[in-house]
Nucleic acid binder design. Structure first.
Length: 366
DNA sequence: TAGGCCATCTGGTCCT
DNA sequence: AGGACCAGATGGCCTA
């Protein structure tokens, strides 16, 4: 079959032209995978005239395109034009297919190979653009890249969130902001984004970017006013709705710099433009304290995969605070998975790259 | 092992 | 005619 012949490894374009778009873990695999594919297909060469991929029209159009071939004019390809024997297939019209001569096969092969190379390049460009997009959305990790679809969703949410900020002219609270960003995202991505924002909040407080660039954020970037949502651990009497704010703020489990959302769509957010499904319930705990997780015991770490890093209001963390995990409902109720935690170390927000962040920063300065 | 994600190949269609 | 774009198919890798 022609499509098999097209995949001669010697004809394949040099994939090493594109080392950048392949992530660290994938570069070798990509080459190996391609080699394997080539090997596999070459091994199928003897399956000539059998289309194992897809519909079955295969290289017909290319074959038909070889009109300039002048030899063997009446010698048609039996498979293509021998419709008499195929009762259920409609009779093909148009020019009769010519028999594949070696020269024609070679031309088709070259053309197909060139088309494949172009398609690869096109997809690489697309992936490169997607990588650039990943770098300007709020959550960026070198080690755990957002998937393509999640990147696009997050970008859309981010644009929406920024436009809402501009439109309302108000500082957003962390809940609605995170909600907006995480609309329609998968639970792991939601956790990733929330964690990233959490880290970012810490950076805001310490006025230090991870890359060393300094910027100013005198206060938590989000207003921490009353939230309509309640984390499970807020069930303690001090944290009940209606309890006075003072006691809530001073309760060891209830940092004043804490935003909690346990599920459902925010009533503050009612954009008709949102078509994505609601994010799974989550519990976002804004962390605006300095790092404390280093002091957390391994046991506690296990129990609080993605727990709130408490502000300095209380030095102790009671073991009953399991609800603090980035609550994941349903099948993933076990909390944040470790693979979603580790990348936060190299996760950062690109304040210096995205104009939107400058806008936000300027906004928060006022 | 199923499902998600991805890269690649492939053929069809449209455009220049 | 050739290139760009698209969608389907396929297989590999990874993770729960």
């Amino acid at each position: 079959m022609l499509t098999r012949l097209f995949n001669d490894p010697s004809l394949l374009p040099d994939m090493q032209k594109f080392p950048a778009w392949v992530d660290d873990s994938g570069s070798e695999d990509s080459k190996t995978k391609e080699d394997e594919q080539d090997h596999c297909r070459l091994g199928d060469e003897d399956l000539d005239e059998v289309d194992v991929k897809g519909g079955g029209s295969r290289a017909q159009s290319e074959i038909a395109g070889e009109e300039e071939e002048d030899e063997e004019e009446e010698d048609v390809d039996e498979d293509d034009c021998g419709d008499e024997g195929e009762g259920d297939r409609p009779k093909k019209r148009g020019p009769k297919k010519r028999k594949m001569t070696p020269a024609r096969i070679e031309r088709s092969k070259v053309r197909r190979q060139k088309a494949n190379a172009r398609e690869r390049t096109r997809m690489h460009d697309l992936n490169s653009a997607l990588d650039n997009l990943r770098k300007v959305v709020p959550c960026y990790s070198k080690t755990q890249k957002l998937s393509k679809i999640e990147t696009l969703r997050l970008a859309k949410n981010y644009i929406w969130a920024l436009s809402e900020i501009l439109r309302n002219g108000k500082r957003p609270d962390v809940v609605s902001y995170v909600q907006t960003l995480c609309k329609g995202l998968s639970q792991p991505t939601t956790n990733l984004v929330a964690g990233c924002l959490q880290l970012n909040s810490r950076n805001f407080l310490t006025e230090q970017c991870q890359d060393g660039a300094r910027f100013h954020m005198p206060n938590p970037p989000f207003s921490m006013h009353a939230y309509p949502y309640q984390c499970s651990r807020l069930s303690s009497p001090q944290c009940q709705p209606g309890s006075n704010t003072h006691s809530l703020r001073n309760h060891p489990y209830c940092s004043p710099y804490e935003a909690v959302y346990t599920g459902g769509a925010s009533p503050e957010y009612n954009s008709p433009d949102y078509e994505g499904q609601h994010s799974p319930p989550m519990c976002v705990n804004g962390n605006f304290s300095l790092r404390q997780q280093e002091s957390v015991s391994p046991d506690a770490e296990r129990g609080y995969h993605y727990s709130m890093h408490y502000s300095g209001l209380s030095g102790s963390r009671p073991p009953a605070a399991h609800g603090l995990t980035y609550s994941t409902s349903g099948a993933r109720s076990g909390g944040m998975h470790s693979e979603n935690v580790a990348p936060f170390h190299d996760m950062h927000v690109h304040h210096d790259r995205a104009p939107a962040y400058e806008e936000l920063n300027a906004f928060f300065h006022n």
